[in-house]
Nucleic acid binder design. Structure first.
Lengths: 201, 201
DNA sequence: GTGTTAACTGGCCGACCGGTCAATTGAGGG
DNA sequence: CCCTCAATTGACCGGTCGGCCAGTTAACAC
């Protein structure tokens, strides 16, 4: 038998509802009343557990973004500096964004808000990534005349922005069929370009 | 001598103020009172000229996005299908986003809103771009084993997402100095990757 | 001059917002 | 058992929002 009172579960329910609402509608448009309704609790409970709407949003961001950074970390951990493992890391990253579209929305919101609450969470991961790439370059696995930082960025942008634009672009170009198929096609073509470029070899 | 009443100028003032407010704060957070204040008119005038806050936002989007599509069109018009001219088109696109960060913000808002008001505005331009690339491929200027649509996408993503993430990424990696220098560095490195790939040749 | 029309104003409305507060309730320790 | 304290509730607050409306004013056609 469960307790009639379970503050942990309540917090979790509020957080889940808040994540849904915030990522769907953004901070401004989401209302605490709506979040309370979704979570099946009263509005006052939100303030009791989290203090304010702003603190709740920060909590949501830190959690989600922390998970994102964690995934990135795992991705890099298992990647010794070879081109093949870079490919696998890229795939891991792509699949993660594919499975959790909330992540892409979160980062778009953070961009528009000029957010800096989560700035530090992925710093170490990024630096780690740069060093891995640098090692692969020195090992002759990757060309040495590109800055490893910008190489990493291109890598991230190609994966991330697809999920941000695919709906609009595929609609405009009348590319029909299930989204998953579009994802696969893009991924394959993007890999070719990223590794080998668009010029003929 | 100017008229005391100039509805055209009033409309323009409201539109300009609305664009600033909406792109800064988003649809929900921006208020009609604030827009009226910025434009130096009364709130009622906004409803008189545009009907509702929502219609005003749509008007702003259509205008901005239309200009964006126009720029894209110009970019492609002067680009006969050679690799060198593709490079110049990419630079034109990059410079345009660099000069008008509002464009990047607008597209982020549209993504988050699931916007479809502007869906058709750039359709022709996109198709045009795809055909240009296809022609370059058949001419042997670009490799033929990548889908021209996804090639175009990669092109767009690499330019666009930089302006969406550069602040966060450069802060995390402690890349200091003027933003313009970072833009140049990224642009050069990104070009290398896009054309030649990250693998050694 | 006069009438018509549209630009423009200020005041107002109901709805909803985030947040507060006093009161109630249940769980757990002594 | 009761005492304590946190979890929880619902009523309520001041403030802002988008939108409306009645009235005023300037331009213009005749």
């Amino acid at each position: 038998m469960v307790n009639k009172r379970d503050p942990e579960a309540t917090r979790a329910a509020i957080l889940a509802a808040a994540e849904d609402a915030f990522l769907e509608q953004g901070f401004a448009e989401a209302s605490t009343s709506d979040i309370a309704r979704r979570a099946g609790v009263t509005k006052s409970l939100i303030h009791h557990h989290f203090g304010s709407k702003q603190k709740l949003w920060t909590e949501v961001k830190v959690r989600r973004f922390g998970e994102y950074a964690q995934r990135q970390q795992n991705m890099l951990d298992q990647s010794t500096p070879t081109a093949e493992l870079l490919r696998e890391s890229l795939e891991l990253y792509f699949r993660f964004l594919q499975k959790t579209p909330q992540t892409v929305r979160l980062m778009a919101w953070m961009y528009l808000e000029g957010d800096n609450d989560c700035g530090d969470l992925d710093r170490a991961v990024l630096k780690n990534g740069v060093e891995t790439i640098r090692a692969a370059q020195e090992d002759g696995q990757l060309r040495k005349d590109v800055d490893p930082r910008y190489l990493l960025f291109s890598f991230l942008f190609l994966a991330q922005h697809w999920f941000q634009s695919r709906e609009h672009l595929c609609r405009d170009l009348e590319m029909e069929g299930p989204v998953e198929d579009r994802d696969e096609e893009y991924f394959e073509n993007m890999l070719k370009i990223f590794f080998e470029g668009v010029l003929p070899r």
